[in-house]
Design a protein around this nucleic acid. Structure first.
Length: 269
DNA sequence: TAAATCCTGTCA
DNA sequence: TGACAGGATTTA
């Protein structure tokens, strides 16, 4: 669910409420999220620690505590972090109580989301270094290097967080449509001009989505529990069979790398 | 490169 | 009832 624009929207919302605040109580409703022994350690290390910074890398959200230890969230498909003064209607997995702020609820229908507590210098990625953040770190030059000589298809490559972090199945498809490139094109065979066009398309797609506070197709909510409006901008995502907004021919729906993918076979080459 | 896996819910 | 869903890892 949440890709870069959604996670960034949540990060900004949470920053307004919780910076310089500290957690004073933690409840776990889903033991899958955290074991009892981990919760014990969590309480000792997190409670009373001031939230100094909220950072994002790709789809990861990181809270830097005064101790230098960090809380890292990944929302996966359906995770939500919502600020409320009473429990939400839906099931929640974790609740954080704050000294001088409203409670924070971690809700997550499919329960794929995760939370970690990391010591001062412990990396939050296990084996694979995540690639440059699609908005904050990726440059045209780096993008060219990532695509060069690669035989993999462009859509799965854009989704590979080890190459570039933050892009998911919505914005990859939308950017490819905007750049008029087929999702199945071999990455290494994309021309210089097309690479520039795709780089620009990615930035514009992600920025526009951020300005619209993310895309809500179903589960996504911001930290106030509100839907985003970037879905109104979608040209292809989940629009298979509908007429292309540019040429009116029906959009094609295929599977690429196991992901549902929609494109225009006439506009995208 | 693809399929299975972790889950719950929706839609045809 | 089966297919599919915004993610990512592991296995074959």
């Amino acid at each position: 669910m949440p890709e870069l624009p959604e996670v960034e929207t949540i990060r900004r919302d949470l920053s307004k409420h919780y910076l310089q605040q500290s957690v004073i109580g933690t409840q776990i409703a889903d033991p899958r999220l955290m074991s009892l022994s981990s919760l014990h350690a969590w309480k000792k290390r997190v409670h009373g620690q001031t939230w100094m910074e909220l950072q994002r890398q790709g789809k990861y959200l990181q809270v830097v505590l005064a101790s230098g230890e960090r809380i890292v969230f990944h929302l996966r498909m359906t995770g939500q972090l919502v600020i409320l003064d009473r429990p939400p209607a839906m099931k929640w997995r974790m609740r954080l109580r704050f000294q001088n702020a409203k409670d924070l609820y971690f809700c997550d229908q499919r329960r794929f989301g995760e939370v970690w507590l990391l010591s001062k210098d412990q990396p939050w990625h296990n084996q694979h270094l995540p690639g440059p953040d699609a908005l904050n770190e990726l440059t045209r030059k780096k993008f060219g290097e990532i695509l060069a000589k690669r035989t993999t298809r462009i859509h799965p490559l854009l989704l590979d967080q080890r190459r570039i972090s933050g892009i998911g199945n919505i914005y990859s498809q939308e950017a490819l449509f905007r750049a008029a490139i087929r999702p199945t094109r071999q990455a290494g065979k994309i021309t210089k001009a097309e690479t520039t066009s795709l780089f620009t398309a990615l930035r514009e797609t992600l920025k526009a989505a951020l300005e619209h506070r993310g895309s809500t197709s179903r589960n996504y909510r911001d930290a106030y529990g509100r839907v985003g409006s970037a879905q109104l901008l979608h040209a292809v995502y989940r629009k298979g069979g509908k007429p292309c907004s540019r040429c009116q021919k029906p959009l094609k729906s295929i599977r690429v790398g196991g992901r549902g993918t929609v494109y225009c076979s006439s506009c995208q080459r």
